[in-house]
Amino acid sequence: MTRHVSATNDGRGDGGRRRWTVRAVALALAAGGLASAGAAPVPAAMQPPVIEEFVPIDELPEEDRLPAAPFLIAAYSIVWVLAFGYFWLLSRRQSAVERDLAALSRRLPVPDDDDTPGTAGEKQP
C-alpha cells in the first residue's frame, strides 16, 4: 500500500518535476533573451566608421575638429605632475618621520656605546 502510494506520488512527482524543469528552462530562456535585449549594444566607437567621401579637415565644423596636440601635451604634463607630486609628497612624509625620530631621541635616554640599536631606552640596572 505504502509502496503503491509512493509509486503514485513518484509518478506525480515526476510529472511535477518535468513541469518545473520546463518552466525553469523557459524562465532561463526568457531571462537570457531579456538580458541580451537589455545588454549594451556594441558602442558606436567600436564599429569602423563608414567613409563615403573624403572631407578636408579645414572643411569640418569647428566642434568636430579634435587636434591631438593638446591631448599629447596633457598626457605628458599629467605624468610630470603625478611623478614629481609624488616625490614632493614623499619628501614631506619623510620630513615628518624625521621630526618624530628627533623628538623621540630627545625624550629617550642616550644609550651606552655597547647598547644595541634595538635596546635604546631600556632601563639600566
Binding site: 619623510q94 625620530l101 623621540l104 625624550r107 629617550l108 631606552g121
Partner: peptide, 16 residues
C-alpha cells in the same frame, strides 16, 4: 626607506 623609518619610530615609541 620611509616605511623603514616609520617602523623604527614605532619601535622607539614602544621602548619609550
Amino acid at each position: 626607506q620611509l616605511e623603514e623609518q616609520r617602523a623604527s619610530v614605532d619601535r622607539l615609541w614602544l621602548a619609550y
